[in-house]
């Protein structure tokens, strides 16, 4: 890594701090607007709670303090990376998140890998055969897949692959009680990962196919492609070595932007497949008004998204050597 790049990375990391803090402050105030709190929910679940009981819970959770004081306590703790304790689960928020983060990251990364890989191949194939039956077929297929709701697709895949064919598990991340370690554990997770990753990835395949196709067509119109053809290079070589690499920049940009989006999409997929990731945790935390947990997850996911975008910025340099970080 050159010195310029290093300075660039450090500067960007410093910029991350105020951004993330501002997001956290905004989240805190936004969530406080929602009616009801965790004490209401627990008292409601307990069925026969008294007013005193609910107030006792509020006192335990620090929800009886004035709003500005709660805000001050929260932001002060955040500065030293203390995310507090989950109201409902009574465990440190950071532990709960770290227990779920790997599952979500594995799912997201695999899904985006599938989406980008398949999307690029199909996009290039469609662009090379612009206007032909193959192009139309790919474009239509992409549109259809794009229109299928993820939860329905997930259920259909379960019906096909776990009930009818009985070759893939219907849910979960590991075989319960099998106690696999090492390679066996990795294979077990991979086996469970196939359906959720494909479900989540297919939607984005459509996005990347369309984008890659459009981007390729744009590049095909440029002079250097004409030069390459004049040199007598094969169409395959032109497409993959010259055009595709140049056409990849918008795809990389979209990858970064879509990571946040993907986190949202993973909620549905995690629900259908019982995948123990952050998506489901955030949904339950919201319904249960588990403020600390919710804020913690939003904080961590904003950090993940900001860092992912930094990585994408660095990737530009690799894809296109003309881009220099100043």
């Amino acid at each position: 890594m050159s010195k310029a790049t290093l300075v660039f990375v450090l500067r960007r990391l410093l910029q991350v701090i105020p951004v993330v803090l501002a997001i956290a402050a905004f989240n805190f105030l936004l969530l406080k607007l929602a009616p009801g709190d965790a004490a209401d929910i627990i008292a409601g679940q307990m069925g026969h709670a008294t007013v005193e009981f609910t107030q006792q819970l509020r006192r335990e959770f620090g929800l009886d303090l004035p709003l500005w004081e709660q805000f001050l306590v929260y932001m002060t703790r955040l500065l030293v990376f203390d995310l507090g304790v989950s109201h409902l689960q009574g465990l440190p928020v950071i532990d709960l998140i770290l227990a779920r983060l790997p599952a979500t990251l594995i799912l997201m990364i695999t899904a985006i890998f599938i989406a980008v890989l398949v999307g690029i191949v199909l996009g290039v194939a469609a662009a090379r055969r612009q206007g032909t039956l193959a192009d139309n077929l790919i474009s239509t297929l992409a549109l259809v897949v794009y229109a299928i709701p993820a939860f329905w697709l997930g259920l259909m895949l379960i019906v096909l692959f776990s009930i009818q064919l009985d070759i893939l598990p219907s849910g979960g991340m590991v075989s319960i009680g099998a106690g696999h370690t090492g390679l066996a554990h990795v294979l077990d997770v991979a086996w469970h990962l196939v359906l959720p990753a494909v479900t989540l990835g297919l939607f984005y395949v459509a996005v990347y196919t369309r984008l890659m196709r459009a981007s390729m067509l744009e590049v095909y119109g440029l002079d250097f492609i004409a030069t390459a053809r004049a040199k007598g290079l094969s169409e395959g070589k032109i497409a993959w070595t010259h055009a595709a690499r140049n056409a990849l920049l918008p795809v990389a940009t979209l990858c970064g932007v879509q990571l946040g989006h993907l986190l949202g999409g993973s909620i549905l997929v995690e629900t259908v497949f019982g995948w123990p990731g952050l998506g489901r945790l955030v949904f339950d935390a919201l319904l249960q008004r588990d403020l600390n947990l919710l804020l913690g997850i939003l904080f961590v996911s904003s950090v993940v998204v900001v860092i992912a975008n930094l990585v994408v910025d660095l990737l530009y340099g690799l894809l296109d050597p003309r881009i220099v970080h100043k």
């Binding site: 259920l155 379960i158 019906v159 776990s162 009930i163 849910g171 629900t271 259908v272 019982g274």
Partner: peptide
């Protein structure tokens, strides 16, 4: 053993199977 399956239809499939 308690198996956590968040989706209602998926829970039904697990019982059926």
């Amino acid at each position: 053993i308690l198996r956590v399956i968040p989706d209602g239809a998926a829970r039904a499939i697990a019982v059926e199977r």
